[in-house]
Every structure is written in structure tokens, then in C-alpha cells.
């Protein structure tokens, strides 16, 4: 199943055979994350369409309120930069029933489910001893992904600054830019993701290109999409679904 191939390499916060070696190099201080407010007429994808002309296509209204940041180290089709959605707790899920409405919000199915305890600093201060099994606070995490890969918490999380993720070179990365961590193993998927084939572009096909983060669809600790009962299908005459 492709879901297993497309799994991500974010590892659990609970202790799972925890490594006891903190990164040797001091982590670089991650840049401050800010939402990008679009400027009127700023269209990096189609600069040839002048804003305000009769034929200009309107930008999707939801984008203005959507927190996003430019993806670092990745470009989309044509070498254009693109933006990734940031975690915005409290937003409605993208399977909302108000799918056709102008006030449609989306982002981060995972946010409301597994990042309810974010920010980590509300409990953790300073160095977190990952050898100490304190999994009670993170019982909602199912460590399927680390179990399959043999990773530990400290493979992906910084013990002295659990707010951040840790790349293999010890560099700290914000959870909003988790794709940088995922890309270290899942290079093919990330390349497809940057090109727009894996994952989802949000709001519109035109204008600002904002795509969803890896962890917006995949639970990093249990990346496979779940099986469930589908929405009811059509009532069709005859077996096999003949003509309507």
C-alpha cells in the first residue's frame, strides 16, 4: 500500500527505547515563524496576469487568513518557491460540511488531535530526560512509525528543546517545517510533494501556492491513513454499477 511508502519520519514524543545521547553540536536557533500576509497583486505563479484587469482571476478568499510560510530548500514546478501551511490550532478540519462556503477554513487534521499539548514548553522546561519514561502524558501517541523504523524519540525530537525537531546533522527545525525532517528519508515523496503531486494544494489552483504540510494529513507517529466506512455511493441499476 502506498500509504506505508508515503509515511513520514517524525518520531514520537513518548519514550520508545529512548536514546540517551543528546546532539553533540549546539542546535542552531530556528528562525521565527510568521504567517505571510499576501500583498494585493502579488502573484508569483502568474506574474503575466496583471491584477485588477477584467480577466484577472480572484484569489481565493480564504488565503488571506491562512497562516503559511515559504518552504525552505524546496521549489515547485518551474523552480518557483511555494508556501506550506502552518499549524493553526482551532481551525476547522478540511472535511468540514461547509465545504462549498466562502468562509471555508482548513488545515491540519492532525493539529487538533495530536498537537493538543502544544506548545511543549507549557510542561517541559529545559532539558527533557528522554530516558525517563513519562509516557502517561502522551498516551494518545501510537508509535507505529518508530516501531517499524527502529527509531527513538531523540532521533527526531530535540531533548533540550522539545519544541523543535532534530535533523540528522543536529540542526533544530520548527514543527511547522517538519517536511525538512521527513525529506531526510522520504526523498521521493517530498519531491512529489514539492511538485504538487503528493499532498494537497489548499484553496486555489491559481495565485499563491500554499500546500499542506506532511503532518497535516499524516499522523507522524502513525502515518498510514486509516480505513473507514465511505460516504454512501449511488443507487445503480444492475450489478457492477451500470449506466446511471
Amino acid at each position: 500500500m502506498s500509504v506505508f511508502r508515503s509515511g513520514l519520519l517524525l518520531l514520537p514524543l513518548i519514550l520508545w527505547g529512548c536514546g540517551d545521547n543528546p546532539p553533540e553540536t549546539a542546535p542552531a536557533q530556528p528562525a521565527e515563524i510568521r504567517g505571510v500576509v499576501p500583498e494585493a497583486g502579488d502573484d508569483p505563479v502568474r506574474p503575466d496576469i496583471a491584477p485588477g484587469t477584467v480577466h484577472a482571476i480572484e484569489e481565493a478568499p480564504g488565503l488571506a487568513s491562512l497562516a503559511a510560510d515559504t518552504a525552505r530548500g524546496w521549489t515547485g514546478p518551474g523552480g518557483h518557491p511555494f508556501e506550506v501551511t502552518l499549524r493553526t490550532p482551532g481551525r476547522r478540519g478540511h472535511l468540514s460540511n461547509r465545504i462549498g462556503m466562502e468562509t471555508f477554513d482548513l488545515t491540519a487534521r492532525v493539529t487538533n488531535r495530536t498537537l493538543t499539548q502544544y506548545p511543549c514548553t507549557s510542561c517541559h522546561e529545559g532539558l527533557v530526560d528522554m530516558a525517563d519514561r513519562v509516557a502517561d502524558a502522551h498516551r494518545n501517541i501510537q508509535p507505529v512509525h518508530p516501531a517499524r523504523t527502529g527509531a527513538t524519540c531523540a532521533t527526531c525530537h530535540l531533548p533540550d528543546s522539545v519544541q523543535y525537531l532534530r535533523l540528522t546533522d543536529g540542526q533544530a527545525v520548527s514543527m511547522d517545517h517538519a517536511y525538512q525532517l521527513c525529506a531526510e528519508c522520504h526523498q521521493g515523496e517530498t519531491r512529489s510533494w514539492a511538485a504538487g503531486v503528493h499532498g494537497k494544494r489548499v484553496e486555489g489552483w491559481h495565485g499563491r501556492r500554499v500546500i499542506m504540510n506532511c503532518a497535516d494529513c499524516h499522523d507522524p507517529h502513525r502515518p498510514a491513513l486509516e480505513s473507514r466506512i465511505p460516504y454512501p455511493g449511488p443507487v445503480l441499476p444492475g450489478p457492477g454499477g451500470g449506466p446511471p
Binding site: I229, V235, G241
Partner: peptide, 11 residues
């Protein structure tokens, strides 16, 4: 040979 009116847990 496809079934368009399936109704069970997917995939």
C-alpha cells in the same frame, strides 16, 4: 468489472 456501489470499510 468495477463496482461503483460498494459499501464496506475502505480501502
Amino acid at each position: 468489472h468495477g463496482d461503483a456501489s460498494y459499501h464496506h470499510e475502505v480501502p
